[in-house]
Design a protein around this nucleic acid. Structure first.
Lengths: 201, 201, 201, 201
DNA sequence: AATGAATGAGGATTCATTCAT
DNA sequence: AATGAATGAATCCTCATTCAT
């Protein structure tokens, strides 16, 4: 009989499984991923996954949740760094930070912009919970910018969603098709499109 | 029907099946859709589907193909209608036509912006064939606008993709979450964001 | 409305279908052969087979029957030709005729020595009806030879079966694997083995 | 059993499944046998078969392989036993051993001389690998006998095949039709036919 | 805690056969 | 007589989940 695992140990194991799952989901997509392969990648045996997670579904949900949080954390941190100069600087920084985060983590992009669609109704609600948190972060920036007249006066939630969607889609496309463009050019383009598009003329 | 069918009749039956499949796929998503349910929706028996299509996969591919073509046809037609006034009018018209087409066919949106991810590698290549056709149409407009100095000078394919992606994502979001906004407002917003974003200042 | 077919016409059609079936069964084996392919090979439409035959099974049975009769006819004719000389001449002739018939009709061999096993119990009884007829023909020769002291005194039915089986198996093997031997050598071998084996010392 | 199995235990379970499969295949033939029935016979649930074997096909292949090996082992052992007396004794012993093995295992005979034809091209190559091994064993005996002038000088592979085919066919016939003969008489007959047939006069 | 054998529901696909025309 | 669309039973295989050890 083995001794009880401490909470941290258990959390550590969970994190390992989540990391393995992320890798496999990203490579194969939700449906083509089997629990067996996640276990194998996590160097765990077949059924042990179920000691840490209730189901494949639950594992996926939790993965999405944690990835969503990581994304938010990253963007929030980027914004906390004071950006000098122009009044549109925070906005610019947020867009750039998001894009760069996506560029640095292709598996995340696959998860958010491909696999998140895999579960249909079963996930849609939950996904939107996560995603909406992120959108909400951006919304705040947008709203405050709008108040100061820096951004056109459209429903801020929609504006925020547009930002997230555009950055995400472009990042995803770059993974699937090779556009041959340097990341910097694409980042400039996205920032420029959104800034120009949203700043009042 | 148990007699020889003319080519048109046969095509008609195929179209019925495609329509049924579209309905079911849109409601449930690719994986949750069973061939049995498509058959039932098409008021056909199980195996008859296989008289008209080689497999569930093939049926899905063909559906995507035909939906992609319908989309392109719609946008192309909207552009053919001469739009009076400002030089950015064709561009504006294209964006609006796309958005309106999406608004008018929610199942199409589900198919293009959710189920198209369902097949993973098995479909990615084919999907991009279809989708890229559509992107290519937009690219032409963008490129010609860029030449005339109406649009900022960014890689036109990326610009085109951004347009398609943004319109699609916003339309999709409206289906999944109720944003409570009138279609006209959203259409204005999209057009404005893209036009302002892409026009040189 | 078409005029009634004469009996001969109908028989002709049946024969065409049987010929087509023989070709396809021989190429693919019973189970891998679909009724559709038989119809296609016979240049007939899908369901028409069922106007001439009750089922795939019945078609196969009838085919085997007619092939079995052809085989018997051939061997009987060969024996009717008076063979001069040695008293073992008729026996020799029968073996040779059988082998040559097999060499000349590879599809027949596939049918008799491969596909006849395909139906399991469903066919075993019937097959043995056919096959036993052929064995019976040989048995007569064997029995009369035995009476005249030309052949060893073993149960004639078993002797007859051995002859048929050996010739058949060797012919079959030549089709499946290329033994590189001229037919004449193989024929000599078979005749020699059987004759020596069965003649009293 | 829901605990880790040792390698031997696992092999044991595989062997149980193979035994169950042998029984069912022999009774029904390859195509009429369902995986469900094999599972039931092995007192396992449906999907468990797939824990041990990749497919029905693979199971069948492996079964044939192991049966082929058992056959060869048996004949080889019989030959290893020194047989006294006449120089043709080893040959006589081999034929007898083969026949007796067939008599003692009717399922084996069904498998080798009926079901081996069931898979068509999909199996022909593999079957011949197995069968040819067996033929090869006999060939060696034949070739050495031929060198010593004990056996007529015909292509030894063909001679070997003839031996195997004749013994097999006769054994198979005895299973399907009741010839009413004691095994000893049939064994004598086969040995006598082959020996006389193959010894030089 | 961990293992991996066992389970069985679920779903795609094939194809002989039927039958309206 | 002939057609070929329609039917649906039959079966293989996958894989999430359970559970004895």
């Amino acid at each position: 009989m083995r001794r009880a695992m401490s909470e941290e140990e258990k959390e550590g194991r969970r994190a390992e499984i989540l990391a393995a799952a992320k890798k496999v989901f990203a490579r194969k997509g939700y449906h083509a991923t089997t629990v067996a392969e996640i276990a194998k990648t996590a160097k765990l045996s077949y059924g042990s996954i179920y000691w840490y997670f209730d189901s494949k579904d639950a594992l996926f949900h939790e993965l999405m949740e944690s990835e969503g949080q990581a994304l938010r954390r990253h963007v929030t941190e980027a914004l906390a760094t004071p950006s000098p100069g122009a009044p549109d600087a925070p906005f610019r920084a947020a867009v750039r930070a998001t894009f760069e985060f996506f560029e640095s983590d292709r598996a995340l992009v696959k998860l958010l912009f491909r696999d998140s669609y895999a579960l249909g109704d079963r996930f849609e609600k939950h996904l939107f919970g996560i995603y909406e948190g992120f959108i909400g972060d951006i919304e705040e920036i947008v709203a405050s910018a709008a108040q100061r007249g820096i951004v056109v006066d459209y429903p801020p939630r929609m504006v925020a969603f547009s930002v997230a969607a555009l950055v995400g889609q472009i990042a995803h496309r770059r993974i699937v098709t090779d556009d041959g463009l340097p990341a910097a050019v694409v980042a400039d383009f996205v920032v420029s499109l959104l800034l120009n598009g949203l700043l009042p003329r």
